[in-house]
Amino acid sequence: MLRVDVGAAVVTSWRPAFDVDPVVVLRPHRRGHGDPAWRLDARGTVWRACTTPAGAVTLAVRRAGDHVRGSAWGPGAEWAIQGLPDLLGASDDDTGFVAHHPLVAQARALRPDLRLGSSGRVWDALVPAILEQKVTGKEAWRTWRELCCRFGEPAPGPAPEGMFVPPTPERVRAVPDWEWHRVGLDGGRRRALLAVASVANRLERAAELRGVRGRDLLRRVPGIGVWTAAEVAQRAWGDPDAVSFGDFHLAKTVGWALLGHDIDDVELRELLEPYAPQRQRAIRYLEGSGVKRPRFGPRYSPRDYRAF
């Protein structure tokens, strides 16, 4: 991987030894179409605004022929560029994966560029995961936008207009009580967010422990359960076996794709057992297959906790 400094930017050109589509690999980090920390421009460049141990960073990634080009600005630029290969799945290993269902095999053949990337950053995955607990996606994404724009900082460098770096743990702990109502966060999720903010540095070790040990470390914090730990593990260290049990849609979606009918979490665990220790990889293939569960009723109406 070639890395050079260009003015205030750190730039790299990397030729991966595998097929990779940065848009596909980085899409799990996007929180809704209006995510202020994630953008896709007309040239196919993915822009991410992130926190790092060294400070804020804006990272721009795009495919250029058989190379991936990355540019980073801000105090965390070096850290982000060094982690770019892993972010795009260089450390992902699907050795031993067997497609036990025809649909999984078909999806895998159609998407050889699907990789499980590792951001190496627990905090940036943990905050939105907490916001998404037990609410609709629209509710969670609205709060995420409010939190980033009110308490984050403008993305450094030539980032697209309106991009913000997520707030740091220190900034979250300093948010006044009344502001939590304005961003639309209820008491339970607020308590969980403040709890992880108070031990955020120690929780970053989960990305080093990885696997079950990493998820167990996250679950030591009150308000962090199986679902939230799995959502973080999938993004922070590309955990191939982290299944988001307890998700409102997941069991139904997988059941419909593989069996043609809804199932519950108990049946989901049994259905995915042959794929252990790569159950999440199988789910990603199913999600990329394009199979959709039919809708049988009206969608849930988003609630608004904001106080004006």
Rank of each mutant, 00 (worst) to 15 (best):
E146N: 13
V4A: 12
G34Q: 12
R281Y: 12
G246R: 08
E139S: 05
P112K: 05
H67W: 13
V98R: 15
A107V: 08
T58N: 02
R121M: 03
Y285I: 06
A242G: 07
L116I: 01
L271C: 05
R43P: 02
P154L: 09
S244I: 01
E204I: 06
R48S: 03
P169A: 12
E287N: 12
L258Y: 02
L268D: 07
L110K: 14
H33A: 15
H100L: 10
G152K: 03
D86S: 15
A17D: 15
H181K: 14
P169L: 12
C148Y: 08
F308I: 09
S244G: 00
W178P: 00
Y285H: 10
R31M: 14
V135E: 03
G76Y: 06
R63P: 00
T12K: 03
R145W: 10
V232G: 00
D93L: 08
G32P: 11
P169Q: 09
V4W: 14
M163G: 02
R108Y: 05
R121L: 09
L203V: 06
W47D: 01
D264H: 11
R215Y: 02
G55V: 09
V23S: 05
P158M: 09
G225H: 10
T12P: 00
L250Q: 08
V212M: 06
R189H: 03
G211P: 00
A195Q: 09
K252F: 07
V68Y: 03
P166Q: 08
E161T: 14
A174D: 14
G288A: 15
G32L: 10
D265T: 01
V20K: 05
L114P: 00
P28V: 02
P102G: 11
P112N: 04
R15A: 14
R63G: 10
